[in-house]
Each structure stands twice: as C-alpha cells, then as structure tokens.
Amino acid sequence: MPQIVKGVIARSKGADVELVDIVVPDPGPGEAVVQVQSCGVCHTDLHYREGGINDEFPFLLGHEAAGVVEAVGEGVTEVAPGDFVILNWRAVCGQCRACLRGKPWYCFNTHNAKQKMTLADSGEELSPALGIGAFIEKTLVAAGQCTRVDSEADAAAVGLLGCGVMAGFGAAVNTGGVTRGDSVAVIGCGGVGNAAIAGATVAGATTVIAVDVDDRKLEGAKAFGATHTVNGRTEDVVERIRELTGGFGADVVVEAVGRPETYEQAFYARDLAGTVVLVGVPTPDKQVTLPMIEIFGRGGALKSSWYGDCLPSRDFPMLVDLYRQGRFDLDAFVSERIGLGDVEGAFDKMERGEVLRSVVVL
C-alpha cells in the first residue's frame, strides 16, 4: 500500500526548498523501498535547486544516503528487507557493451526505479536527484541502487560513499591508478578533493599535495593525509608542485574543481607521462584550450572520472571495512548532523565553505 512521508523538494529554480508530504508507492518489479537513515547535503543537490542540471522541476533532493531496506518488488535478489544499504546512482545493467566487456563501472545503461514518487496534495510527479531522492523518510529506488554493507557502520558516515567521497577516492585510486610511492596533487579541497587525498594516502602515495585558495581548507586537508599544501591565491601552483616533486611534477593530478584555469594547472603540474584526472564537474559553458604539441609531448593520460569509476558492489563494502578498521576516516567528512527541515541552511553553510558535509539524520 502506498505510504505518505515527509521529504524535501525544490519546486522551482532558485526557490528555497520545502518540506512536504510525498507519496511513495509500493515497490514494483526490480524496485525497493528504503527507510532512509542519513543523507549528505551535496553540491549536486544545490545544482538541482538552481536549475543547473535540468529543468524537470519539482525535484526530490538528496542522494548521498544509507538506510534499511523495508520492502522489495518482484524478482529482486540483490537485497532483502532488513538489509542495511548504501544507495548509489549508477545501478549497472549487466547487458550493455561496457558490462559485457567486463567494465561495468563504465555501464552505459544505468537505471533507476520505473515508478515515480508524487506530491501528496497534487499528484504531481517528482524528479528524484540522481535517480534517488533521499531527503525523505522513505524512498523508492531500483534494487540495483542498493549495496548491502556492514550494519554496524554509522549511517551518517558511510552514506557519504553514495556520491562525493566515492567520487574523490575513486578518482585517485580507480581512475588515476595511484599506487605506493607515487606523488599526487589534488586541486580543490572540498569533500571530493579531500576524499581523493585520503584515497591517495590509503593507496600508498608518499607525496600528497593539497591545493586550494582557502587556508582553512588547506589546514583541513592535512587531516586526510596531505603532506604539503599550496595556496593558489598567493603561490604559483604549477611551480610549487614541481618544487615539491623534485622539479618534475606529480605522477597524478586530480582536478576537483571543474574550471578551465584549474584544469590547465593540473595539466602543466604533472610529470612527463603523468596522469590528469578531472572529477570536478564543469558547467556546460566551460571550455579549455591546450597546445596540441604539449598534449603530444608530455605523453601520459588525460582522464575524466565517472563516479570515481566505482563498482558499488565491489567498492562500498571494501571502503566500509577500511572505515571499520580505522584505516579510512569517514567520520572526518561529517561536519554536522541536521534534520530534514535544515537543508536550506545547510546549503548556505556549504556555499560559504563552512562545512565539508552536513548530513541529514532521520
């Protein structure tokens, strides 16, 4: 029987979010209803509110979430009621050309729940952020968007693997291939950038350089494993990274901002045959111009990272295990715990750079 629960929506571009009643249908074939325990407040949610993703308002916001499966639909075998899960926004299909080539993290046909959640007062269909919509007491998702993990883990911490932390960690480890002894530079020390720093540290990088224009963020990056910091407002980023890497440049540079000027810094700050990884999300109008002779002459690789090129079924349980063992400090990403009614205020704090992640706890 459909349920009516409280959830946070963006009704129109730029308008403050609203806490409203939402109808969640029973799960159909291949779907699951999840009782949400936590959901991080991510920049992507703000982009949805501002119309920066698309104009399919109203949006049900929230996507960095963990919770407990309440019910599943016909044919679901991945999870069962009572399972503690992290939600992901790239449920792989298993049938596309990427999946069939053994590279499901590149799946070209990821899917979401087929049914729609609706506004209780009007019946209007909601567009769930990244196919999840988790600023809500209970949400409807595709069963493949649920990854079962250790139920003893703190939901507020491990739920962040659902987006930003996984994107950053994976950008360094999966996409960038950071390994022991590498030098790594990370440009942009928000949640994603700090996750890349933490990932590089876990993977064994010996020189990890944090770059930002905010001294508060640079100081915070040290807690995630940064061995050196560079303030791009007062220092020449490329020259400083070269100085810190024996004059050569970093083996891997992760760009976690998504701007042409920082991407250019990343390009020139890498060693010959080094790797640049773009994980910062640019707006559609951003363009970068580089001399082709430099692209050719430097060799190496210029990569973009989709969700940290992660495979949730492989990576989420592993990272939760590292967290439980004290080897990957997910708690450090949780700046504050808030209620469903506090999302708008959390957006303000995020824009002012006061938090890594505000986390809604239900």
Rank of each mutant, 00 (worst) to 15 (best):
K116D: 03
T118W: 03
T118N: 02
L119A: 03
D121N: 12
D121G: 14
D121K: 14
E124V: 11
E125H: 08
L126R: 04
L126D: 07
S127I: 14
S127K: 08
P128D: 03
A129C: 10
G131A: 11
G131N: 08
G131S: 12
I132T: 10
G133C: 13
G133M: 10
A134T: 13
A134N: 05
F135T: 15
I136L: 13
I136N: 15
E137M: 15
E137I: 15
T139C: 15
T139N: 12
T139E: 03
L140F: 12
L140M: 12
L140W: 13
V141M: 11
V141T: 07
A142N: 06
A143Y: 08
A143K: 11
A143F: 14
A143G: 13
C146I: 09
C146Q: 13
C146D: 08
V149W: 11
V149H: 09
D150C: 03
D150H: 05
S151Y: 13
S151D: 15
E152C: 07
E152D: 14
D154I: 14
A155H: 14
A156S: 12
A157M: 07
V158A: 09
V158C: 12
G159H: 07
L160C: 02
L160T: 04
G162D: 02
C163H: 06
C163L: 07
C163R: 04
C163P: 01
V165H: 00
A167V: 00
A167I: 01
A167K: 09
G168E: 00
G170H: 04
G170C: 06
A171P: 00
A171W: 05
A172G: 03
A172T: 02
A172V: 07
A172R: 01
A172S: 09
V173K: 00
N174E: 01
N174D: 05
N174F: 12
T175E: 02
T175C: 04
T175Q: 01
T175L: 01
T175Y: 00
T175A: 04
G177T: 13
V178P: 05
T179P: 12
T179D: 14
T179Q: 10
R180E: 15
G181A: 14
G181F: 13
G181H: 10
G181P: 10
G181R: 12
D182W: 09
S183V: 13
S183A: 10
S183K: 04
V184P: 01
A185M: 06
A185R: 09
V186G: 00
G188N: 10
G188S: 02
